[in-house]
Amino acid sequence: MAATALIVIDMLNSYEHEDAELLLPSVRKVLPRLTSLISRARQSGTEVIYVNDNFGLWRSHHDELLDTVLSGPRADLVEPVRPDGNSLFVVKARHSIFYETPLEYLLSQHGIDTIVLCGQVTEQCVLYSALDAHIRHIRVTVVEDACAHIHADLAKAALRMMEGNMQARIASSTTEYLFGNDARAAGC
């Protein structure tokens, strides 16, 4: 049976990088919708998978990365979206969630053929991940208001590219039936 997963991209972040000041206003704006989206996925029984940069810390693992960002100056942006005990976690080193990660194998093992993308950055990691999913014949939904951007104009262009060139569904966090089990969670 085919399934859907919510992929949370790069939200475990210390925001101590070059573009952080440009990114922060957008992160603050999308954070409530992103938090609600993660909660909705969990309530519907949808697999929540965090795919996150390792910040060049090649000896680190999930708990160390989380501890690092939660003890940093922007912990308030991480705490609301932190993984729970049921979340899956994949470390990446480049923009795409698929590039040299085990994500494709994980998805196939869980029967997942549709991914819902949220997180950051729309015009970078979300865009490249949507392209890589498309070439792997994985259906993609991008939750526009749950993705942060650095440059609004590039984010809008990236969303148009994902929709037009990659057949990605562009949705809002309030769109019904984002997850295959939404109807069950709603008591339908």
Rank of each mutant, 00 (worst) to 15 (best):
R59C: 08
L131R: 11
L88I: 10
S87L: 05
W58N: 11
R82H: 11
E79N: 10
H110V: 10
I150W: 04
R74E: 13
C147K: 00
V69L: 05
N86E: 15
C147R: 02
L88W: 10
V48S: 04
R74Y: 15
R42Q: 06
A93I: 11
R136L: 09
A152T: 12
V81H: 03
L77M: 12
D76P: 09
A133L: 10
D84R: 04
V140D: 00
D84E: 10
T101D: 02
D153S: 13
E100Y: 07
F55T: 09
L117F: 01
A130I: 04
G111T: 06
H149M: 02
L65K: 05
V69C: 01
D63N: 14
Q43V: 06
I97H: 04
R82C: 10
V78D: 03
I97E: 05
I135F: 12
D53T: 09
R42V: 04
H151K: 14
A148C: 12
V142D: 02
V51W: 02
V90S: 01
D145R: 02
D113G: 15
R42N: 05
I150V: 13
N54D: 15
S44P: 02
T46I: 08
R42P: 00
H61Y: 12
E47F: 14
L127K: 04
E64F: 13
Q109S: 13
I112L: 04
P80S: 08
K92E: 00
V143C: 07
A93Y: 15
T46P: 04
V126K: 02
I138T: 09
G111N: 09
V69H: 01
D132F: 05
T122Y: 02
I115L: 07
F89Y: 10
V142E: 03
H149K: 02
T141Q: 12
G45R: 04
A152V: 15
S60A: 13
V78W: 02
G119V: 01
N86M: 10
P80L: 10
F89A: 06
V126L: 08
D76F: 08
I49T: 03
V143W: 03
P83N: 05
S108T: 14
D153C: 11
L57Q: 13
V121W: 01
H149P: 01
L65M: 08
D63A: 14
R42S: 00
T68R: 15
V140S: 01
H62L: 12
V51N: 00
R59Q: 11
L103V: 06
N52W: 01
A152P: 15
V90H: 04
V48N: 02
D67H: 13
A133Y: 03
L107T: 04
I112Y: 01
V91L: 15
T46Y: 03
S96R: 00
G72P: 06
H137V: 11
Y105E: 07
F89L: 06
I115D: 00
D132L: 06
G45I: 05
E47R: 12
L88N: 11
Y128N: 07
N54L: 08
T68K: 14
I138C: 08
P73N: 11
S60W: 09
L70M: 13
L127T: 05
D132C: 07
V69F: 02
Y128I: 09
T141M: 13
D76Y: 10
G119N: 00
N86V: 11
R136Q: 09
R136M: 06
V69D: 01
H134I: 09
L57P: 09
Y50H: 07
A133Q: 06
A93D: 12
I97S: 09
Q124H: 15
A130L: 04
